[in-house]
C-alpha cells in the first residue's frame, strides 16, 4: 500500500499539486487519470522519488518515503519497478541485457545461469520469447513495452509504476498491455500505479481510480463507479470524445 498525505508540489510560483490525499492499494491496479497538465506525471515522479514534494508525506506501507535514510531508500528501491512512457530501454544493450541490467547491478550473489533463468521467466511472463539478442530498435513499440515490463518485474518488486503504458500503441496492443499489467498485479499481489488518460484502461483495469483536476483530487472510485457518477469533472473527462458523448446520449434515449 502507498499513501500520499496532503501532497503539495510547486515549481517556483506555480503550484502543480495542491494537497492530494489518496491510498494506492495492494493487489489492485491503481490508476491516476486526468487531463494533460493535471499533475499526473508529477504525482508519479513524487511517488517513485524522482522529485521531492514541497509539502506532505508519501508512505510506503509504514515507511515515510520522503524522509528515508539513503540506506533505507536504497533497500526500498529494490522493491520498486517502473515502466516509462518511452520505455527507457538502453539502446546499446540487447533485450536480454536490458532485462538483466538490474540483476547485474544488484544481485551479486546470483550465478549467470540463475540470472539467465530469471530473464527467461520474465520474458515468458510478458509473452515475449526468442528476442533475447535483438536490440530495442529492432523490435516493435508493443514489444518494447513488454521488455520494459519484464525489466520492471525482474527484481520481483512489491510496487510497480507505469507511466502511460499505452501511449503510442494501437488499441488492440494497448488492451494486451493492460491485461498483462493487471495479471502481473494479481499474480504477485503487488501495488501497481498506472498513470494514464486512456479510457479503455480506465474501464478495463481501473480498480482504484484517482482523478486529478488542476492539481487537486477531483474524484476517486472504481471503474464500476465511473458510469454511475454524477461528478462533472469525471464525466467531462470520460466523455470528452464526441463519439462517446453520442453513445451516452443515445443510451440515455
Amino acid at each position: 500500500m502507498i499513501r500520499v498525505e496532503k501532497i503539495h508540489k510547486s515549481f517556483g510560483e506555480q503550484e502543480v499539486l495542491k494537497g492530494i490525499d489518496f491510498t494506492f492499494e495492494t493487489g489492485k491496479t491503481n490508476l491516476i487519470i486526468g487531463k494533460s497538465g493535471a499533475g499526473k506525471t508529477v504525482l508519479l515522479k513524487l511517488l517513485v522519488g524522482l522529485m521531492k514534494p514541497t509539502k506532505g508525506k508519501v508512505w510506503y506501507d509504514k515507511l515515510d518515503f520522503v524522509n528515508l535514510s539513503k540506506e533505507e531508500l536504497q533497500s526500498l528501491r529494490m522493491d520498486v519497478g517502473m515502466l516509462f512512457q518511452g520505455n527507457a530501454l538502453f539502446d546499446s544493450l540487447t533485450v536480454e541485457e536490458n532485462i538483466r541490467f538490474p540483476l547485474d547491478m544488484f544481485s551479486k550473489k546470483m550465478s549467470i545461469d540463475e540470472k539467465q533463468e530469471r530473464v527467461n521467466t520474465c520474458l515468458a511472463k510478458v509473452e515475449l520469447e526468442g528476442v533475447n539478442h535483438k536490440y530495442p530498435s529492432e523490435i516493435s513499440g508493443g514489444m518494447q513495452k513488454r521488455v520494459g515490463i519484464a525489466r520492471a518485474i525482474v527484481l520481483n518488486p512489491k510496487y510497480l509504476f507505469c507511466d502511460e503504458p499505452n501511449s503510442g500503441l494501437d488499441p488492440k496492443t494497448a488492451i494486451t498491455i493492460d491485461e498483462l499489467i493487471s495479471n502481473i498485479t494479481k499474480e504477485f499481489n503487488i501495488t501497481t500505479v498506472i498513470n494514464t488518460h486512456d479510457m479503455n484502461s480506465v474501464m478495463e483495469i481501473g480498480e482504484n481510480i484517482c482523478l486529478l483536476h488542476q492539481g487537486k483530487l477531483a474524484w476517486q472510485g472504481s471503474k464500476e463507479a465511473v458510469l454511475d457518477s454524477s461528478n462533472e469533472t469525471l464525466t467531462d473527462f470520460i466523455f470528452a470524445s464526441p463519439f462517446l458523448k453520442k453513445l451516452r446520449n443515445a443510451a440515455a434515449g
Binding site: 524522482l50 528501491r77 519497478g81 516509462f84 527507457a88 547491478m105
Partner: peptide, 13 residues
Amino acid sequence: QKEHIDAMEVMGV
C-alpha cells in the same frame, strides 16, 4: 531526455 537516467535512478543506481 530518453529517461534512461530516471530509469536507473528508480532502480537505485
